[in-house]
């Protein structure tokens, strides 16, 4: 029990021992950055280097048909399609199907993440991102790839974070801060691409040219700054109101382990 608590507190020392820069690691890291960034999202051949392109989509199903009638004859039948989730669902049942639509992304991303990690990309991420993440967010650089994953899909970020925790690469304090980072403007890139473009385009159409493409960049930049601000607000909160966080979670962990043993 005691040793378990110790491991949780001292993640840094454990990662020092087996660290090495490898060429494959650097290549895998670069690949991961491109793969999860969405830059190469395309139907062309280079789409094979993009996460969302390879993640694909569900087929469409017809949910209703309407007919155009002229001179008492049906001249055209128009079919409306949706994904298998259908339209007009609500409540727990709709939530279940919605979760099913998200599952393939998580399964696929975790598979790719395992390969990338196997090739040594996590170690490269740790070294490259450490000088940035540690002072700015109070979390280790090893979170770099996970952060990238969470910009795309929050579920991918959450699953990856769980994985880092399970392997004791993050302690509870770092995990809590990192969670706030992901929670604030979660899934930013995907959400922005899906709904932000429409919103700003509609806004631009009604206004007299004050809203331009710079607005789009501005919104993204402000959101990234706010992610950092939110993480630091939590850091401040923990420093002011939760000084015993580490001790408390360590004892909680010990209790859980004891319960498991029983």
């Amino acid at each position: 029990m005691q040793s378990n608590g110790d491991v949780l507190m001292t993640t840094d020392s454990s990662s020092n021992s087996s660290s090495k820069w490898s060429l494959t690691g650097v290549i895998a890291f670069c690949f991961a950055c491109i793969f999860f960034s969405g830059l190469l999202q395309s139907k062309e051949w280079w789409g094979i280097f993009d996460f969302l392109t390879l993640a694909g989509n569900f087929g469409k199903v017809v949910h209703s048909v309407s007919t155009k009638v002229a001179d008492g004859h049906v001249v055209e039948v128009v079919a409306k399609t949706t994904s298998f989730r259908g339209s007009g669902g609500a409540g727990a049942t709709d939530g279940f199907l919605f979760a099913l639509t998200l599952a393939p992304m998580v399964i696929f991303a975790m598979g790719v993440f395992a390969i990338i990690e196997h090739l040594g990309a996590l170690e490269v991420a740790r070294r490259l991102m450490e000088p940035l993440f540690r002072p700015l967010l109070g979390i280790p650089g090893i979170c770099g790839l996970t952060a990238l994953g969470s910009f795309q899909t929050v579920d991918v970020g959450a699953a990856m974070t769980n994985d880092l925790m399970a392997r004791k690469l993050l302690n509870r304090r770092e995990k809590t801060l990192f969670t706030q980072f992901q929670f604030c403007a979660g899934g930013l890139l995907t959400n922005f691409l899906m709904t932000g473009a429409v919103l700003l385009a509609t806004a631009a159409a009604t206004h007299d040219g004050t809203i331009t493409t710079t607005s789009i960049g501005l919104v993204l930049v402000v959101n990234f700054v706010m992610k950092i601000l939110a993480t630091n607000l939590l850091r401040l909160y923990m420093a002011l109101f939760d000084k015993t966080f580490d001790e408390r979670t360590a004892s909680m962990e010990a209790q859980l382990t004891a319960a498991d043993a029983r």
């Binding site: 979760a99 975790m110 598979g111 699953a159």
Partner: peptide
Amino acid sequence: IFVDGARKGWNAA
């Protein structure tokens, strides 16, 4: 390795 990771993804999802 992919399948092992994907299995983790299934469990999480």
